[in-house]
């Protein structure tokens, strides 16, 4: 069926298009370093999208829940077997992604006879010192990126860049309190989510993309009305990796009440 090379390239191209469509409805995930650790945030409807992987590693995912579960188990197995056989400090996000997860995702993506993983994954890794915090994002084709300070996953690379851009604009993020970090993350999430919605409408209208470039990013009012709309039927999900938490496990999912208290000041600013 794919005896001619260009057919294979075409099939992979079709796959890309199919996969890009699958993420349009998804909710972006934002992660950033703040004064006491790392915060992960997304907005979800029911199924959780943030998970604990190991003592210092948290995961945020987009895509099909069954695929995400499969890869989450892969990561958990890898991390725990490695942590037991060697030591917990040998379990690093970078090794798990480069030698564990990325090859598996890439292979599934390129085996055009089989179904690909419909997932984008973000790993946040708490360093022993703040400057060693690390973020990794993996795309559905197995490509991955490492970054410092913060990271995001969203439906397209361009939107992802916009979200990260909005995080970078916040100076002093490294010294931010948890509540400031949550506020920044929520707004960055809204920028991504709003851009995805605009892109989707454009796609449906079969127009050329009219998505505003980052120079004319959406104004504060547009973001706030988008937040008000989405929070009416969805809930904010937050987790932290806290450097000073007692014991070896640093990951903690925040309870709904705590999230409300943290974001109360910023949610109150949104006009009803």
């Amino acid at each position: 069926m794919f005896e001619e090379p260009y057919r294979w390239v075409e099939a992979v191209g079709n796959r890309r298009q199919y996969l890009d469509e699958q993420f349009q409805q998804g909710s972006p995930v934002v992660a950033l370093s703040y004064a006491d650790g790392i915060l992960l945030l997304t907005v979800s409807r029911g199924t959780p999208k943030l998970y604990e992987i190991y003592d210092r590693i948290g995961l945020g995912g987009m895509g099909h829940p069954a695929d995400l579960e499969k890869l989450r188990f892969n990561l958990l197995e890898m991390a725990h077997v490695e942590g037991f056989n060697r030591s917990p400090s040998d379990v690093t996000g970078s090794r798990m992604v480069k030698y564990g997860l990325a090859p598996v995702i890439k292979q599934a993506f390129e085996e055009v006879y089989k179904a690909p993983f419909i997932v984008k994954i973000l790993l946040a890794e708490l360093g022993t010192k703040a400057e060693r915090d690390a973020f990794l994002t993996i795309n559905y084709d197995g490509t991955f990126e490492e970054s410092k300070g913060g990271a995001a996953i969203a439906s397209t690379p361009a939107i992802q860049a916009d979200v990260i851009g909005s995080l970078r604009k916040q100076a002093e993020l490294a010294a931010a309190s948890l509540s400031q970090a949550a506020d920044t993350a929520l707004r960055a999430w809204a920028i991504g989510s709003l851009a995805q919605r605009i892109e989707k409408v454009d796609d449906e209208d079969h127009k050329e993309s009219m998505r505003p470039s980052s120079a004319s990013s959406p104004d504060a009012t547009a973001i706030e009305s988008h937040l008000r709309e989405t929070l009416a039927d969805k809930t904010i999900e937050c987790a932290v990796l806290e450097r000073t938490a007692p014991g070896s496990s640093k990951y903690r999912a925040l309870k709904a009440e705590e999230i409300n208290n943290l974001l109360l000041p910023s949610l109150n600013r949104i006009p009803k």
């Binding site: 604990e52 190991y54 958990l76 725990h80 942590g83 037991f84």
Partner: peptide, 13 residues
């Protein structure tokens, strides 16, 4: 060591 990893693994999975 086994118990420590077992309880964590159970909680996380």
């Amino acid at each position: 060591r086994i118990l420590e990893h077992s309880f964590k693994y159970y909680r996380r999975t």
